[in-house]
Design a protein around this nucleic acid. Structure first.
Length: 649
DNA sequence: GCCGTTTTCGGCCCGACTGTTTTCAGTCG
C-alpha cells in the first residue's frame, strides 16, 4: 500500500522519467529551471504555500472544529492529515498545481479537494468561514495547560470569553466558579496555566535533552529497588527537538522511586503524582514524566512510552484486529463484544522485552528511531525493515574545523581526537576566505596549512610503523585529509579557483551568505557546486538552524537528482543545531539514489561526538550503512573523489 | 473525515490522573 512509502509516487513521477541519463543534455535545462513547470502555468500572483503552511491551516481547522464540539474523529482526521502533509517529501501545493496530487495517507476526497483549492487560489473558503465562527484568539486558549476544547467551548458559550485577557479577567473576578464542573480551584488552575504560558520553554535540542536526562538518571540510579532507568519518548526516538522528557523505571519499590523523583532539587513543581507515575517541571524548564514498570513486564511499557503516539495507535489497531487490546500493561484478550474479558475470563499477556511484544503482533522489532508511522509497521510485518546504520559503521569524519579558521582546537588536537576514536581519517575542512566572519583561509594560507597536515601524517605513519598508534587505530592506519569548507558565493561562483581546489584531498561546499535569494538563484548556486568536479560533499544542504534559520528555498527533487548524477555526497550534519539533511530529506535523497556522508562539523574536540546525532538522524531516515560514504575505507572514499574529477573535468 | 483480504457503512486506541462529583468528564500523553 502507498502508506508504506507516502508520496513516493508523487516524488518519482516528474523525475523518474527525466532521471540521470537525461540530465546531462535535455535535462540540463529542466534542472537549471527549478521553477518547473514554466511559470506561465502557475496562477499569477498566487503564492505557493509550503507544506508547513498547509499543515498549519489543517491543524487550525482541526482545533476550530474541536472547539465547536465537532465529532472527535473528524477533528483527529484533520490533524492526522496535517501531520502527513507536513512530513510529505513532496512539495504538496506544487504537485497539486501541476496536476499530479500525491497519494498522502490520511488525505481523502474531502481534504484533497481543499488542498486543490489552497494550491490554486492560496485560500480556502471553508477555513475562512470557520475563522469567522471561531476566532483564532479562542483557538489560542487551547495552549493553556489543562484547558481543552470542551472547556474553551463552555467558556465561549457561557461567558462570552474570546481572548486570553477575557479569560484572565473572568478568572480573577471569580466569574467562572459557577460554571458546571468548575470551582474556585479551577479558576486558580486556569490563572496558573496562563502564567505557565508566559514562561513556556521552547523545545530542547538533543544534546540538552541528553544532559538533563543523564543527570536525573544519575540522581535516581541508586534508589532502593531500582533495576533500570530508561529514557523513553521522543528522546529515545531521537527526534530533532524534544519537548517533554520521559523516564521509565523498572523497580520493586515504586513508592520509594516516585517519592525521590518528586523531591529532586532540580524540581520546580510537581504537576502530578500517583503510585506508578509522576510528572514534574524542572527549574530549567522541561517537564519530566516518570513511569514505573513491573520487573519482568517491561516490553509493552517500553513500546508504549517510547511512542510515537501514531505508531502506538497503529499497533493497538493491529492488536484489536487480532482480538487483543494493547496498553502499556500488556495485551488483554477481547471478548465477542469487543471489550476486554473480565473476571475469571480475563487474560493478560505481558513480555519482558520489546522484541517479544512486537513478535506477539507478528512484527519484527522496530528500532525506536523508526517509530513514527511512516511505513515501519508494514515493513516490520513483511520482514523488510532496513539494516540501519550504527555509529560504529563510521570510519571517518569528512567535516571538521581547527583554530586556523573558526574552530577552537589546533589541527593536531582535532586529528589526535579523531585518531583516538578509531577513525581511519578525518578531513580538515577549514573555511575558505569568502566567509570572512569565520576567518576563512586564503589560497596562501591553504598551502601553509597543507605543510602542517603533511608533517602530521608523516608522524602518524611513523608511529603506526613503530606500533605506537592508539589502540583503536584500524588496520589501514589514520590519516588527516586536507580539505576545505568551500563557500558558494552569492553570484554562484566558488570561492577558490579550480587549480586551488584540485590540490585538496576532499572539498566540502556550503552556502552561508545571501540565503534569502529567490529559489532560482539559490538553485543556480547549489547546482554550480554539485557540478564542480572538485566538490565532493554538499554540507548542511538545507542551511537551517533548528529553532533559528529556516531552510533554504530549494527545489529538492532537482538537488537530489543532480547530486546522484554527479556523485556528490549530501551531508547529514551531526551538530544538534543543524541535523541537516533532516531525517525525511535523507530518506528522500537515498530514494533518489544519492550517497550521504555523516559528519560532525566539529569546531572543538568535544564536538566530534556530534556524529551520533547525525547517525540517529540517518536512522530516522531509514538509512543503511551502504548509503553512507564515510563508512567506507579511506582508499575507497578517495577513489570515489578522484573518479568524480575524472568524469566531470 | 478516513478507510476497508473480516466492512463502501460503521467503525475509528488506551489508561492515569485530576477535580468535581455521587458515577463521571475532561485533559494529557
Amino acid at each position: 500500500m502507498a502508506t508504506s512509502d507516502p508520496g513516493r509516487e508523487g516524488t518519482g513521477a516528474p523525475n523518474a522519467a527525466s532521471g540521470p541519463e537525461r540530465a546531462g543534455t535535455g535535462g540540463r535545462d529542466a534542472a537549471s529551471d527549478p521553477g518547473r513547470p514554466p511559470g506561465d502555468m502557475l496562477p499569477p500572483g498566487v503564492p505557493l504555500l509550503s507544506n508547513a503552511e498547509l499543515a498549519a491551516i489543517f491543524h487550525e481547522i482541526g482545533d476550530m472544529l474541536e472547539v465547536q464540539g465537532e465529532l472527535v474523529f473528524k477533528t483527529v482526521a484533520y490533524h492526522r492529515a496535517a501531520d502527513a502533509i507536513a512530513h510529505s517529501p513532496v512539495e504538496v501545493a506544487r504537485a497539486y498545481r501541476e496536476g499530479h496530487p500525491p497519494r498522502i495517507p490520511g488525505v481523502g476526497a474531502a481534504i484533497s479537494k481543499k488542498l486543490l483549492e489552497l494550491a490554486t487560489t492560496g485560500r480556502l473558503a471553508f477555513h475562512e468561514r470557520l475563522r469567522a465562527e471561531v476566532p483564532p484568539s479562542l483557538v489560542a486558549l487551547l495552549e493553556i495547560p489543562g484547558v481543552g476544547p470542551r472547556t474553551v467551548k463552555l467558556l465561549h458559550e457561557q461567558r462570552g470569553i474570546e481572548t486570553l485577557d477575557d479569560l484572565r479577567r473572568a478568572a480573577e473576578a471569580g466569574h467562572l466558579r459557577d460554571l458546571r464542573g468548575m470551582s474556585e480551584r479551577t479558576e486558580a488552575a486556569i490563572l496558573d496555566g496562563i502564567a505557565q504560558l508566559d514562561r513556556r520553554q521552547q523545545r530542547m535540542r538533543l544534546g540538552e535533552a541528553e544532559r538533563i536526562v543523564e543527570g536525573i538518571v544519575a540522581e535516581l540510579r541508586d534508589t532502593p529497588g531500582v533495576h533500570a532507568l530508561v529514557p523513553a519518548g521522543s528522546f529515545r526516538r531521537r527526534r530533532e527537538t524534544i519537548g517533554d522528557l520521559d523516564l521509565l523505571a523498572s523497580t520493586d519499590d515504586p513508592g520509594a522511586l516516585v517519592g525521590r523523583f518528586v523531591a529532586m532539587p532540580s524540581v520546580d513543581r510537581v504537576l502530578g503524582s500517583g503510585p506508578h507515575k509522576a510528572s514534574v517541571r524542572l527549574h530549567e524548564g522541561p517537564q519530566v514524566d516518570l513511569m514505573v514498570m513491573p520487573p519482568g513486564e517491561e516490553g509493552t511499557y517500553l513500546v508504549h512510552f517510547t511512542g510515537s503516539k501514531e505508531h502506538n495507535v497503529r499497533l493497538r489497531s493491529r492488536a484489536r484486529e487480532r482480538g487483543w487490546s494493547l496498553s502499556e500493561k500488556g495485551y488483554l484478550r477481547l471478548g465477542p463484544d469487543g471489550e476486554p474479558l473480565t473476571g475469571d475470563a480475563a487474560e493478560l499477556r505481558t513480555f519482558a522485552t520489546e522484541g517479544e511484544a512486537y513478535a506477539f503482533l507478528g512484527l519484527a522489532w522496530v528500532a525506536p528511531e523508526l517509530r513514527e508511522d511512516r511505513g515501519e509497521i508494514e515493513a516490520a510485518a513483511e520482514g523488510r525493515l532496513p539494516q540501519l546504520i550504527e555509529p560504529a559503521d563510521l570510519r571517518g569524519d569528512c567535516h571538521a574545523h581547527s583554530d586556523w579558521s573558526d574552530g577552537v582546537h589546533s589541527i593536531e588536537q582535532m586529528a589526535e581526537a579523531a585518531r583516538a576514536r578509531g577513525y581511519a581519517y578525518q578531513a580538515l575542512t577549514d573555511h575558505s576566505f569568502g566567509l570572512a566572519i569565520a576567518r576563512g583561509l586564503t589560497p596562501e594560507r591553504v598551502l601553509e596549512q597543507r605543510a602542517v597536515v603533511v608533517a602530521l601524517n608523516d608522524r602518524f605513519a611513523r608511529e603506526e610503523d613503530a606500533g605506537r598508534a592508539p589502540a583503536a587505530t584500524p588496520a589501514e592506519g589514520f590519516r588527516l585529509l586536507h580539505g576545505c569548507e568551500l563557500e558558494i558565493r552569492a553570484d554562484a561562483t566558488l570561492d577558490f579557483p579550480d587549480e586551488v581546489l584540485a590540490g585538496f584531498d576532499l572539498v566540502v561546499a556550503s552556502l552561508h551568505v545571501s540565503r534569502r535569494q529567490p529559489r532560482e538563484q539559490l538553485m543556480a548556486r547549489v547546482l554550480a557546486a554539485l557540478r564542480s568536479p572538485h566538490v565532493d560533499i554538499l554540507a548542511h544542504p538545507a542551511g537551517r538552524m533548528i529553532g533559528g534559520r529556516e531552510d533554504l528555498d530549494l527545489d529538492w527533487d532537482t538537488v537530489y537528482a543532480e547530486a546522484a548524477r554527479t556523485g556528490t555526497l549530501l551531508e547529514i550534519n551531526g551538530s544538534d543545531h543543524r541535523l541537516d539533511l533532516s531525517d525525511e530529506r535523507a530518506r528522500a535523497a537515498i530514494g533518489h539514489g544519492c550517497l550521504l556522508s555523516i559528519d560532525s562539523d566539529a569546531h572543538r574536540v568535544e564536538e566530534l561526538d556530534s556524529v551520533r546525532w547525525g547517525v540517529a538522524t540517518a536512522r530516522r531516515g531509514w538509512v543503511e550503512a551502504s548509503g553512507v560514504a564515510n563508512t567506507w575505507p579511506r582508499d575507497r572514499l578517495l577513489d570515489w573523489v578522484r573518479r568524480k574529477e575524472e568524469r566531470l573535468v
